[in-house]
Amino acid sequence: MQFSVLASGSTGNAVYVESGDHAFIVDAGLTGKKMDQLFEKIDRDIKKLTGILVTHEHTDHIKGVGILARKYNIPIYANDKTWQAMDGLIGKVPLEQRFNFDMETVKSFGGLDIESFGVSHDAADPMFYTFHENGRKLAVITDTGYVSDRMKGIIRGADSYVFESNHDVGMLQMGPHPWSIKRRILSDVGHVSNEDAAIAMSEVIFEKQTQIYLAHLSKDNNMKDLARMSVSQTLQSVGIMPNEYVHLHDTDAEQPTKLVLV
């Protein structure tokens, strides 16, 4: 199993995952043209996608979903409430390309098992995914106001994480957004901060080689260096030394990460 964080941030999100003959993207929050360019950069054929796994209906996660599905005849997977919320946002999708993926269920594609789980976000029925193959595990979790014990139980012990590290609380509080938006981001249905993300990480990572990709950084309320430093310092404060067995990586809103083996 390999993956690449194609794009991650306030302006658009997509994660590519492949295993054997199957390949998926978690969300397509960029234009169809931009998605084509990102696939060229990782040297993969977008036409060979097995499906698009939708997490929730916010624009930065579904902007390119309908376009790609129609252009390349790609199946779309989402839960029922998310399908309802997407109506009118992604255009018409043929019935034969519409598939339900219920929350807290597992779908198998060859040797790849994909598990869905709910998160706490201000969307209709938001959920994310873990991927399992041959005892290896990738967990993708962003867009949640907090990481509950139930979520931690599902993502615990993964070999690789795409983990939200959305904002620095100080930058957010001093930033340009109106208080209503700040309150929403800080709420239980908003986004997790650098420090809260690190605390959750410390409770789910095992003492083994683990790759963590810091994702969905706010353009206005965070910086890559700050996110990495904050997460690193918080992990160190509980006895986890980054670069010993936990390795932190940046993601970008415009450039994909290299394909990496889970």
Rank of each mutant, 00 (worst) to 15 (best):
D149I: 06
D149Q: 12
D149E: 11
D149R: 11
D149F: 11
R150Y: 10
R150H: 11
R150V: 13
R150C: 07
R150A: 10
M151V: 15
M151S: 12
M151L: 12
K152V: 08
K152I: 06
K152G: 07
K152N: 08
G153Y: 02
G153H: 03
G153C: 02
G153W: 02
G153R: 05
G153S: 06
I154T: 15
I154Y: 15
I154N: 15
I155Y: 14
I155R: 13
I155Q: 13
R156M: 12
R156H: 10
R156P: 01
G157Y: 09
G157H: 09
G157Q: 10
G157R: 14
A158M: 03
A158V: 05
D159V: 10
S160D: 05
S160A: 14
Y161V: 13
Y161R: 14
Y161K: 14
Y161F: 15
Y161D: 12
Y161C: 11
Y161E: 14
V162T: 11
V162N: 07
V162W: 06
F163Q: 10
F163G: 10
E164Y: 00
S165M: 11
S165N: 08
S165T: 13
S165D: 08
N166C: 14
H167Q: 05
H167R: 02
H167A: 09
D168C: 13
D168Y: 07
D168G: 06
D168M: 06
D168S: 13
V169Y: 08
V169A: 06
V169W: 00
V169Q: 06
G170P: 01
G170Y: 03
G170T: 09
G170M: 04
M171K: 06
M171P: 00
L172I: 10
Q173N: 07
Q173S: 08
M174K: 15
M174N: 12
M174L: 11
M174A: 13
G175T: 15
G175D: 12
G175P: 15
G175E: 14
G175F: 15
P176C: 13
P176D: 12
P176V: 13
P176W: 14
P176A: 12
H177L: 10
H177V: 00
H177G: 00
H177I: 00
H177R: 11
P178K: 02
P178I: 01
P178M: 04
W179P: 00
W179M: 15
W179A: 09
S180V: 02
S180W: 00
S180H: 01
S180A: 03
S180R: 02
I181L: 10
I181F: 07
I181V: 14
I181G: 00
I181H: 02
I181Q: 01
K182Y: 08
K182N: 07
K182T: 07
R183L: 03
R183S: 05
R183V: 03
R183H: 04
R183M: 03
R184F: 10
R184W: 13
R184H: 13
I185L: 09
I185P: 01
I185M: 07
L186V: 04
L186I: 03
S187P: 04
S187K: 02
S187Y: 02
D188T: 07
D188A: 04
D188N: 06
D188P: 02
D188K: 04
